[in-house]
């Protein structure tokens, strides 16, 4: 909607429009929040896998050291 349209609107109508828009905005925010939280719940449901991943930390370190040094050699 363009500004000219707003300018021609009566104050009462404008307030109503703000209210409606605010409602839609709140609903959209709530929907977004719900989706984010659903994703978080999904991640938590995979906790066993995350425990497993966390157990291989020494091989992580070895891999990381190799990659960090190969990156360093490339940079040179």
């Amino acid at each position: 909607m363009e500004n000219e349209n707003f300018a021609s609107l009566p104050k009462k109508k404008l307030k109503k429009l703000i209210h409606e828009t605010q409602d839609v905005l709140d609903q959209l925010k709530a929907e977004l929040k719900t989706r984010k939280q659903d994703k978080q719940h999904d991640e938590i449901d995979h906790m066993e896998e995350h425990f497993e991943d966390a157990a291989h930390n020494l091989s992580n370190l070895k891999n990381f050291i190799q990659k960090a040094f190969s990156e360093l050699r490339k940079d040179k």
């Binding site: 991943d53 966390a54 291989h56 930390n57 020494l58 992580n60 370190l61 891999n63 990381f64 990659k67």
Partner: peptide
């Protein structure tokens, strides 16, 4: 140090 090492797995 443990969780820092774990984070390296995402390299």
């Amino acid at each position: 140090i443990t969780n820092t090492i774990v984070s390296l797995g995402h390299i």
